[in-house]
Design a protein around this nucleic acid. Structure first.
Length: 918
RNA sequence: GGGCUCGUAGAUCAGGGGUAGAUCGUCACGUUUGCAACGUGAAGGCCACGGGUUCAAAUCCCGUCGAGUCCA
């Protein structure tokens, strides 16, 4: 089917026609668009149309709060339910780190038709973070890292139609009118939307040259269906059962258009702009008409182009020509302004990131937070802003509203302050390394090679521009290619590995014909025996109608045990879950379809796993109590001996904190609260408990299993004790710093904890016995021994230099060719021999000394240029069955053959004489 | 999750198979009314830890622990 024809039909809306709109083709770009203005010839989008709303607002004046409220209450009035925003860290998804669009809140389960939406239709204003255009932020006048995507979403199923294209466009029109927009100036540009495995027609809503919204009609997906598909850019897309109205209105853009200010930044956060301007000593610019004119011109032109790389220079040239100054002068004026804007934008981004409990680190979303923090710190340095970054972020938090964030502002401040100190240290360290390298290459009068610069950036985090500046100051030459960052990226992509194929994937088809296995381990988690019927047996895997065996999942290993049929008794050594079917891996025999079996789970192991799993929840809760609200699990591995849990935290957990966590966790156990487990609707559970539900990953499906342990509430599929008391006892083994921002707590629970403590006790008693002291005195005694050992080592050194001195006095040198030469067997360790020999060679003499210890050690030192010690030692040592070598002035060696020592010295003597005469 | 760099005196770092070093800091003595400065000297090292290779390892190899950094 021809995509273009189909798509053209898609836009023939009754609503457009009723409103007397006409479809036109843009004279400039050739795109189709709908308008009420029959005289209009261009689509209204940049670059076809300039930003003519600047200085000429198209809506009634609004700020962020009033515009958001105007939007949400408008849609509420028109039958939509208002939904609270989701966090900017997309914790309910494992494919993206940050929330990048309002629809991301509902992916993948709602958009996939698995889970119903929290309301239908709904409206939301979702803060989103996109870091792809970082370079343009502050420069283009319109780019932001953080923006609120306001949306109304409707999810249409085959059985229930909420509304589709006509109503969507109608609502859009009415909303624009409600904030004072002139509908005659609005155009709807046809646009094929493709993204995230979905596609559909969409219209871009334009006014005054600015795109203020996109209305997407998501109706195609990659999943093959009976209906004919479309080839879109080489991929096939098929009509979906679920058709989703996915709209996105840019809150900041609406506010900008309502004010008509030169840049979006002035419109959206005027207080912050003026605060940062004055902190940078640039306040005078605010009231200067020339600057305002430059900025608005800059923004108008920037709106017409994509700012990146060389385009920036083009932009400068254009603006400079329009106001008749040199591009260089313009650059000097405008660069600080751009940095002010970017600082304002970035601090707002950080307020959201940190407020939503992201902890800066060098992995995942934590790395993104650190990236933005460091970028901001660099700009603040350039602007000579002395105010602490934490103050600016706190101010942004206050403007947005403290109550909108989970993280305590005091913790946010501490995190930022730590990051600031840390970055200063990195810069200092980096500067020293660069200076050193610059000096090296300057001394060789070479340019600093690119490989060095890449290492400096990649391994030490020093920005290439900074490398150039420092090296230049040191007088070295650095060439910096324009495509530096892409070269680094290329280097990384070379070492990329293929993704692993899931091991269970090969059984997907096989289990499709089987009913879901009844999971007895949830209903009777403390039972260990059950009866079942074998439904299938393949590849060593048995499938039964029901089972008590817990399959590997959620960081909990599988149960083991036995299965007995009338014919045989087999071992269950592994259990896996494929979709809703549980596969038991059998060894030591086979089972047959139809066999009645009795299953027995290894009781000790099951209990140990349950205790460790329940303990994980308890420790997480205790850690939150001790360390703060941001504590989030970053992975966990349960075992039957010990378990570990990784926590996101911005500093090292101190031994004291660790003890407090351990004590708190054990108190929770002693309180012996029941463990409550329920199955709840995913969306409702998310609304009720928040996203801290997803600590151990995001489980699939419409319903999720909620486990409540000692105040900790998580979505969890593991087996648990019936009450916290059954855990028995928790002993934390240690805490380990895995990566920046991630601390690993290793612990043990129940019987394993008792064994562990007994093991510790045994270590202490046997150490105490070895030293014949009471365990209580162990630390003091060990300390004393260590200092004594060090003192004695020094004493030995003193004595041995004394021995060398004495030996030296008793040595009588013979004279060969006028040179004092000592050739002698002295049974001292090699180190002393070397000392002795070198004190002779220092005075211009020659010493060949050999001594017998475990093996023979030989040292030859020569203060006489004619005698090359390194050359001679080899032959001497080979007589002893060994080897040797060294420098011309000092050589060492040895060999095992002590009987040959006299011969070796004799040969050595001959060689020295020969060299002296030679 | 993947990659890279680095662990040597209290601090900053050289040395990269052959006797463990420099600078700053510390301490003592000297010059000085005192301080600063200078001079002379000294103390201060499990060369991160555990294996291996070697006649010989701070140095090479493997592992562990720790620090830093880039990317997804």
């Amino acid at each position: 089917m021809d995509v273009l024809i189909v798509l053209e039909e898609e836009y023939q809306l009754d609503y457009f026609k009723e409103q007397g709109m006409v479809r036109k083709i843009c004279k400039s770009c050739g795109s189709a668009f709908w308008t009420r203005d029959s005289a209009r010839e261009i689509c209204g989008d940049a670059p076809c149309e300039p930003y003519n709303f600047i200085g000429n607002p198209v809506f009634k004046t609004h700020n962020l709060d009033t515009m958001r409220e105007a939007y949400l209450s408008f849609f509420e009035k028109h039958g939509h339910t208002r939904i609270e925003r989701y966090p900017v860290a997309a914790r309910w998804r494992d494919d993206i780190y940050l929330t990048i669009a309002s629809i991301a809140d509902f992916q993948p389960y709602v958009t996939g038709g698995i889970v119903p939406p929290p309301a239908n239709p709904l409206t939301i204003s979702q803060p989103c973070i996109r870091l792809n255009d970082l370079d343009s932020v502050g420069r283009s006048g319109r780019h932001l890292t953080t923006f609120e995507m306001m949306a109304h979403h409707a999810f249409n199923t085959p059985s229930e139609e909420i509304y589709w294209k006509d109503r969507t466009v109608e609502l859009c029109d009415q909303f624009i009118a409600s904030i004072g927009g002139d509908l005659n100036r609005v155009t709807f540009k046809e646009h094929l939307w493709i993204g995230g495995g979905n596609a559909g027609p969409s219209v871009e809503v334009l006014i005054g040259g600015l795109e203020i919204a996109t209305l997407v009609f998501m109706s195609l997906g990659r999943q093959k269906t009976a209906q004919p598909g479309y080839d879109l850019n080489g991929d096939m897309y098929y009509p979906m059962k679920l058709r989703i109205v996915d709209t996105g209105y840019g809150l900041e853009r609406l506010v900008w258009a309502s004010k008509g200010s030169p840049t979006i930044y002035d419109a959206v956060f005027p207080e912050m702009v003026s605060r940062v301007m004055s902190a940078a000593g640039l306040s005078h610019m605010l009231n200067n008409k020339d600057y305002t004119r430059i900025l608005s011109l800059n923004a108008k032109f920037a709106g017409l182009m994509d700012i990146s790389g060389t385009n920036l220079f083009q932009l400068r040239k254009k603006v400079a020509a329009a106001i008749d100054i040199s591009p260089e002068k313009l650059d000097r004026i405008i660069t600080p302004m751009e940095k002010v804007y970017a600082t304002v934008d970035h601090t707002r981004c950080l307020a959201y990131m940190l407020g939503d409990c992201i902890v800066p680190s060098n992995v995942r979303e934590g790395y993104l937070a650190r990236l933005v923090i460091r970028r901001t710190l660099r700009m603040m340095t350039d602007l000579k802003i002395e105010e602490p970054l934490a103050d600016l972020i706190e101010e942004q938090t206050r403007i947005i509203g403290m109550k909108k964030f989970e993280q305590d502002i005091a913790v946010v401040r501490e995190i930022v302050e730590r990051e600031t100190v840390k970055y200063a240290a990195t810069l200092e360290r980096g500067t020293r390394i660069v200076q050193k390298i610059a000096k090296t290459y300057k001394a060789r009068s070479q340019r600093v090679p690119l490989a060095e610069i890449i290492t400096l950036y990649d391994s030490h985090g020093i920005q290439p521009e900074m490398i150039r500046d420092i090296a230049t100051r040191e007088g070295a030459v650095v060439d910096l290619p324009d495509n530096f960052y892409s070269m680094v990226a290329d280097m990384h992509s070379e070492s990329k590995k293929e993704a692993e194929v899931s091991t269970t994937a090969k059984y997907d088809e096989r289990v499709q014909g089987l009913p879901p296995t009844k999971k007895l381990y949830y209903e009777q988690s403390s039972d260990v025996e059950f009866e079942a019927v074998v439904l299938d047996f393949f590849d060593g895997y048995a499938v039964t109608d029901q089972t008590l065996f817990y399959p590997e999942g959620g960081g909990q290993p599988a149960d083991t045990g036995t299965m007995v049929s009338s014919e045989s008794m087999v071992r269950v050594d592994d259990v896996i879950k494929v979709a809703e079917v549980i596969l038991h891996h059998i060894s030591g025999g086979i089972l047959q379809r139809g066999d009645r079996v009795k299953g027995m789970v290894d009781e000790e192991r099951r209990w140990s796993l349950m205790r460790h799993h329940t303990a994980t929840h308890v420790i997480l809760h205790a850690a939150k109590e001790v360390l703060g609200a941001h504590i989030h699990q970053a992975g966990a591995q349960k075992g039957s001996e010990s378990s570990r849990m990784d926590l996101r935290h911005f500093k090292h957990i101190t031994p004291d904190e660790l003890r407090r966590i351990e004590t708190a966790a054990n108190r929770m156990i002693m309180a012996n609260q029941p463990v409550e487990i329920s199955t709840e609707d995913r969306t409702k559970a998310e609304q009720k408990y928040g996203f801290s539900l997803y600590q151990g990953g995001v489980p699939p499906g419409r319903y999720i299993r909620i486990v409540k342990v000692a105040g900790d509430i998580e979505a969890c599929a593991g087996t648990h004790c019936r009450s916290t008391g059954e855990v028995g006892v928790i002993k934390i083994i240690r805490v380990e710093h895995i990566q920046d921002g991630i601390e690993r707590i290793e612990f043990t629970a129940g019987v394993a904890a008792i064994y562990y403590m007994q093991h510790l006790e045994q270590i202490v008693t046997s150490s105490a016995e070895a030293l014949s002291v009471q365990p209580d005195n162990l630390p003091a005694t060990v300390n004393r021994f260590f200092t004594e050992w060090k003192d004695q080592k020094k004493e030995i050194e003193r004595m041995s230099s004394k021995v060398v001195e004495l030996e030296l006095q008793s040595l009588v040198a013979e004279s060969m060719e006028g040179i004092p030469v000592v050739i002698k067997r002295i049974d001292l360790p090699r180190k002393e021999l070397a000392q002795l020999a070198s004190s002779i060679s220092e005075k211009g003499g020659i010493a060949l000394l050999a001594g017998i210890g475990e093996t023979v050690s030989v040292v030859l030192a020569s203060g006489e240029p004619r005698v090359n010690a390194g050359d001679i030692i080899g032959q001497v040592c080979s007589l002893l069955g060994g080897k040797g070598g060294g420098k011309p002035t000092m050589a060492q060696g040895g060999g095992p053959d002590a009987g040959q020592i006299d011969l070796a010295l004799k040969v050595g003597r001959e060689r020295i004489i020969a060299a002296l005469q030679g």
